[in-house]
Design a protein around this nucleic acid. Structure first.
Lengths: 126, 126
DNA sequence: CTCGTTAACAGTAATGATTACTATTATTAT
DNA sequence: ATAATAATAGTAATCATTACTGTTAACGAG
């Protein structure tokens, strides 16, 4: 669904998301934006996150039933601490090289790589 | 939590999961195993999946609030069709080389790579 | 083999993130 | 200014997963 009109709520959501680097969950983001717009509705937050994702203005980081969100829309890898649950950037792009920071953040025990696209065998609109 | 006793239910779950390659969700797996153990409890399925994952006998493929499960515990990449929702194996390992099959399954539009481990900055037991 | 301990189970209730719904507000084109 | 309707606030509903409780069955000791 395309974005057709401006709204203070959406502006505040994007602004908050782009000014932090900790990959907040919907609820964490909600509590932050609430400090600027005290009567922000949780439904509004979710609707905007979905809409912004569809318009490539926000990146969704799948994380069970607690997805995280990132203002950096360039697809990049993440590291999740099994113990505390925090999510860090795993790779950084500088100049033309990719820097892995797994030895800085912590030991990587496991990973999950999921690619998204449209399959050939799909009988739905494709 | 360690597995201490055998159970017919757990055996049936593992057996079903290892005999198919379509990365079923908990519910899909539940319906299949039900055909063998008609009064299998959904709670039992979830408990066993978690336990089997902890004991590296089953791989959990994060997928929103509909995680998928795989009897192949060797970490490997997956491809999810945005249209139909099916999940395929993206990479296959043969001899010493990794074969990417994105051009066979479909076009990759985006990806999500999440690594798991223990971070340095974590103040919980580590 | 029988018994006792308790892991594992079936069935049901509770939880919690997300989505849907409805009446109201506010953006934007005319 | 006004009309059309996108976007919102607040609330209710949904749905996958987890927690709870009484019962069953695996298995080690006698």
């Amino acid at each position: 669904m395309a974005i057709e009109r401006k709204s203070k709520q959406r502006d505040a959501i994007i602004n908050e998301l782009c000014s932090r680097y900790d990959h907040p969950t919907a609820m964490e983001l909600y509590l932050s934006v609430r400090e600027i717009i005290p009567n922000l509705s949780l439904g509004t937050l979710y609707r905007n996150l979905t809409q912004l994702e569809e318009n490539n203005m926000v990146l969704r980081i799948p994380d069970g039933s607690n997805d995280r969100f990132d203002g950096n829309v360039n697809p990049h890898a993440h590291f999740k601490c099994i113990t505390c649950g925090k999510v860090y950037d795993l790779m950084s792009f500088k100049n033309d090289s990719i820097t892995f920071s797994d030895d800085i953040i912590g030991q990587v025990n496991n990973y999950s790589l999921m690619a998204f696209g449209h399959c050939k065998y799909c009988n739905k609109i494709n």
